[in-house]
Design a protein around this nucleic acid. Structure first.
Lengths: 152, 152
DNA sequence: CCGATATTAATGCAATTGCATCTACATATG
DNA sequence: CATATGTAGATGCAATTGCATTAATATCGG
């Protein structure tokens, strides 16, 4: 096979920048949320998926697929969101094991307020740094690095 | 000012892919290390910096600058590395507060074994997915997203 | 229908992270 | 020199993560 065990310098550089830049950017975005006394990004990810899902809600395992969080992580994150009144857990009729998670009004409101800050961070950290074409080019390149098994 | 509070769809897409792909890739690399019973990536980062620094070693605050880890994180990570005999802490002559961290032979050996796995992951996850030119293009685009204050 | 296996979600416990603070030493200022 | 301020690094405690396991259904094969 052509599996190379040793990465090229170009691959190493791209890897290093990818890891480093994404860490920096996430940290900046998290800091911005904290400065506004808002919950962490992980909460946004879940609230976002639930808001998109609408009244039907989502099963926890669907959230796991969409957000890439670990199962135990989602389980506990949902417990915290429920404790804060941002989501509600509903028994699901046709599967006694499961439940459906639905976002509440308060959850939508929290998501909105988070987006005001998070969206600004994205605009500043990424939108303001690259042209439209460069953003598209970046998305395309990153798209080719996705796990083939996880193509959205 | 031209500060936009609302990110363009292209910016949102690039952001989402950046965060998602980097998480996936890091997780894959971590899994590969775990599968070989090797320490996590954070250890590699520190051992790598120390190996590059040579016999002179590095001060903890220099590691913080280079790796972007939080101060308390480095402090504890170094304690674990020392407990494992991978680094040693040396009193530094001209500053009674500080210390110099130096990698040990065992530390170099561990780094080597980690690189065998980690390097393969990079080759597979990134090197095998993009051409040399595309890798360079990706590095260039990511370079423009770096925090201006942290330009290596 | 029954037992074996798979899936969904939760949880006990150890390790790590984050936050705030603390100690020790350095440097600047009058 | 004495005090105030700054810097290097460690640490107590709470929150989160990771790992392994568990409980409660569901589904499949006979």
């Amino acid at each position: 096979m052509t599996e190379k065990a040793i990465p090229s310098p170009a691959a190493i550089k791209a890897w290093a920048r990818l890891i480093r830049v994404s860490r920096q950017l996430v940290e900046r975005a998290e800091d911005a949320l904290k400065d506004s006394s808002l919950p962490p990004l992980a909460w946004y990810d879940v609230l976002h998926e639930l808001a998109e899902a609408g009244e039907g809600g989502l099963r926890p395992f669907q959230l796991i697929e969409r957000t890439l969080f670990a199962q135990y992580n989602i389980s506990r994150l949902l417990a915290r969101l429920e404790a804060d009144g941002l989501v509600e857990k509903l028994r699901v009729a046709d599967d006694g094991r499961g439940q459906t998670i639905r976002i509440t009004g308060k959850g939508r409101e929290t998501r909105r307020r988070m987006w005001a800050i998070y969206g600004r961070s994205i605009a500043e950290l990424v939108g303001a740094k690259l042209s439209h074409d460069d953003l598209d080019a970046l998305s395309a390149l990153l798209g080719r690095l996705r796990d083939p098994a996880t193509l959205e």
